[in-house]
């Protein structure tokens, strides 16, 4: 794995990054209340847009819609802003208000019909959009007893995961127009920071320094199958996966790459940043980006030898 470029621009910690579905743009956000849009030009990754003035506090997450047309940003100011990609720029379309305080995570459903947001107010809000680009509150879900850190929609079904400071993961399903909590996964011993669907199975990372793998079994429930520990020495903040690999980043400034079926470690990048790595996101099997408290974003090239 090779560092291709270090992107500077954010003033203060970079909280999150997200690749557009086609991989041509990278969005980043941070404590400077700004969103940067980066694009690969002939001389490397360059800022093509800087979105400012829509949030009054740190921006915690940015996520592209599945179509790549919209970008949503979640902020500690309690609001979510939806941006539309137009030729050459991003335009703020609307602000979703409702959460009582810091919005920590968001996720788009496969068809972009639903946007889920979660907050320190312990609730998950499901927003529903129609062809007129209006957003309705479809549901407000309470179950977690603490701050909800992240949520993640399944890639083909209306299934949603939520990860919380209460150490649990909840699985939500849309059933005859109601969002029902169909299972709660217990096992982590501290805050669950990030969760991902790995096909129909689930991977999660936590402040308890473990990566856990939950497998869907014959009883149609997820069961804890694997716990990977002893790799990171500080809180694991982020996890991402592709067809072949899983990648994690943590407060120990390390990025670790695992084989996604055996969980064998393929590579450990020590000191990938000079401070906590808040997010790591795969673009495809070849590229990856990471965002850190050191104010930098790094673009990494993954060598093919990793996979063999």
């Amino acid at each position: 794995m090779e560092k291709l470029q270090t992107l500077s621009g954010h003033d203060g910690r970079v909280w999150h990054i997200d690749w557009s579905p086609s991989g041509d743009l990278l969005a980043s956000c941070g404590s400077d209340k700004k969103i940067y849009i980066w694009k690969l030009e002939h001389n490397g990754w360059q800022v093509v847009d800087r979105l400012d003035g829509s949030h009054t506090k740190s921006i915690r997450k940015v996520k592209w819609s599945r179509s790549g047309v919209l970008l949503a940003s979640a902020s500690f100011d309690g609001t979510v802003v939806i941006w539309k990609r137009t030729p050459g720029s991003m335009e703020a379309c609307l602000t979703l208000e409702g959460h009582e305080n810091e919005v920590k995570g968001l996720s788009w459903s496969i068809d972009d019909k639903y946007l889920a947001t979660c907050s320190r107010d312990k609730t998950i809000w499901i927003w529903e959009t129609d062809i007129d680009f209006e957003y309705d509150t479809h549901a407000v879900l309470s179950k977690h007893t603490q701050d909800i850190k992240e949520i993640s929609f399944h890639s083909t079904q209306y299934l949603l995961l939520s990860a919380s400071y209460d150490n649990t993961i909840a699985i939500w399903s849309l059933q005859s127009d109601d969002w029902i909590c169909i299972n709660t996964l217990l096992g982590h011993e501290s805050t669950v920071w990030d969760i991902k669907w790995l096909n129909n199975n689930i991977i999660s990372v936590s402040d308890d320094l473990t990566l856990k793998y939950w497998q869907l079994e014959d009883d149609n429930k997820h069961h804890l199958k694997k716990t990977i520990s002893g790799i990171h020495s500080r809180s694991i903040y982020s996890v991402d996966c592709s067809e072949n690999i899983i990648v994690t980043s943590a407060g120990d400034d390390k990025i670790v790459i695992y084989q996604n079926d055996t969980f064998n470690i393929l590579h450990i990048e020590e000191n990938a940043h000079n401070n906590d790595i808040n997010a790591v996101r795969l673009c495809n099997e070849n590229f990856m980006a990471s965002a850190s408290d050191d104010g930098k974003i790094c673009i990494w090239k993954l060598s093919l030898s990793l996979y063999h």
Partner: peptide, 8 residues
């Protein structure tokens, strides 16, 4: 009725 509709 319902909290989500209060919001709407």
């Amino acid at each position: 009725s319902g909290f989500q509709n209060i919001q709407n």
